[in-house]
Write a protein that binds this DNA or RNA. Structure first.
Lengths: 246, 246
DNA sequence: TTATATTTAGTTGTCAGACAACATGATAAT
DNA sequence: ATTATCATGTTGTCTGACAACTAAATATAA
């Protein structure tokens, strides 16, 4: 039997959504910009409003635009490259997924850090140092954003100079962000915790600088295990408080 | 200024999309299942067809369902592939990617095999044994398909009981297939090679059965390293033959 | 003048009904 | 038995309408 590709009869709303996405990634539409009104889009694309609305609605659920009732639609502030579709993520995130992700990170990062210690360039090291400096700043102010934390880990993946592993790591860090949004676990607010986290990062960094793969791996795995334990403790505490409250 | 959360006036299509997603992650709707017709959904939710369509259209663009004209809507089997794959495919074109993938597999599989040795159920072990048996059959006939090889590795990832790692591994094995189609490296045709590969798999399998994580990891890493070296040798040989031929 | 209601125009949210395009299986013709 | 044709149900798109909402212009009250 011959193997042929099925012809995809592209539907109008999809076509429109893709065109808008292209406009965004081309920079013709920037975050914060207001889209033309639905009536204008109707004329521009030469289709009816339901088609426009199906497209916009899909973009809204993908958290790419925001539709404000009686006001208009606006481009949201988001990086399309790293964007993971929220609807899809919701299916994946069952309870306990955080731990599976952390386990997966042990696999990926426990290895990327070895490669990083072997192959990091001077530039890679400078990048890592810069992020660390930013984290120290945040630490002094008492709050530690998850943003720079994840960037630090991504930079290590980059320093491994393996593009596949880097992209996998990018996906995982996207998942982490979504998870934390859902579970609202801000372990980083515990007193003394930011300093501890920064110290662990420094340890990893130094092992990379000194080109000690094994030490780097151990430091990374310890770090991830520490996060897991802290998460778990926090979760237990919360569920106990909830039980008491009743 | 007080910080308050904006009340999200949840719109009907979003509500519907989320309810359908919930049905899927609850297992009430499984991949391949047909959704009720739009008319029926209309009645079930008590809303109009445009609202239903906005919801379905969004789910389609999220690649969660597939709408077939004149037929109906169907649940797709969705996984992380959706997100990792498009990114990864771009990297395919570069030569040398095979080695990056193999390196990535060391990271993933070097860890999944540990988890597998710890958590594999009786059923997992049976699955692995079956695949091994098939490979032995193929070996006797002299040719060793890549198909069962990759399945064996996937089954190990499954036995780790970490869905994230499994899905990443699925992506990587997809990439492997593509790569081999491109580079046409059939190292498995070298005399004596099939037996060697099967033996390495047996070694991994036994370590898992005996619940020896460290031994399993070593066997896996050795196996992947062996593949890398063989690939490299073959590549050198081919390029030398090409140089001579001219 | 300033602050507060009110109105108004423009925009999004939802609905109803219609028809075209398509898939499938039943029926009829070859 | 194979091929055409048709009947039916489903999705794809359109038109038009109205309700709900926002923001700015206007009117009103202090």
């Amino acid at each position: 039997m011959l193997e042929v590709q099925k012809i995809s009869k592209r539907k109008i709303p999809q076509e429109i959504a893709e065109q808008i996405i292209t406009l965004i990634s081309n920079g013709d539409l920037a975050p914060g910009d207001k889209l033309p009104t639905e009536k204008k889009l109707e004329e521009m694309f030469g289709v009816s409003r339901p088609s426009i609305r199906e497209a916009l609605s899909a973009l809204e659920m993908a958290e790419i635009i925001e539709m404000r009732h009686g006001e208009g639609s606006f481009i949201r502030d988001i990086d399309l490259n790293t964007h993971i579709h929220p609807l899809a993520v919701k299916m994946l995130i069952k309870s306990g997924t955080v731990y599976e992700i952390l386990e997966a990170r042990k696999a990926i990062e426990g290895y990327t850090v070895i490669l990083a210690a072997q192959h990091a360039t001077q530039e890679d090291l400078r990048d890592l140092e810069n992020i660390l400096a930013k984290m120290k700043e945040e630490m002094k102010l008492g709050h530690l954003g998850e943003e720079n934390d994840l960037i630090f880990h991504l930079r290590i993946a980059k320093a491994s100079h393996n593009s596949i592993l880097y992209q996998v790591m990018e996906s995982l860090s996207g998942l982490m962000k979504h998870c934390q949004k859902h579970t609202r676990q801000y372990s980083r607010c515990i007193p003394g915790r930011p300093r501890e986290i920064v110290n662990q990062h420094i340890k990893i960094f130094q092992a990379i600088v000194n080109k000690k793969p094994n030490a780097a791996q151990k430091a990374m795995l310890d770090h991830l295990e520490d996060i897991r334990i802290t998460c778990q403790n926090l979760e237990n505490k919360l569920s106990m408080e909830n039980a008491e409250g009743r």
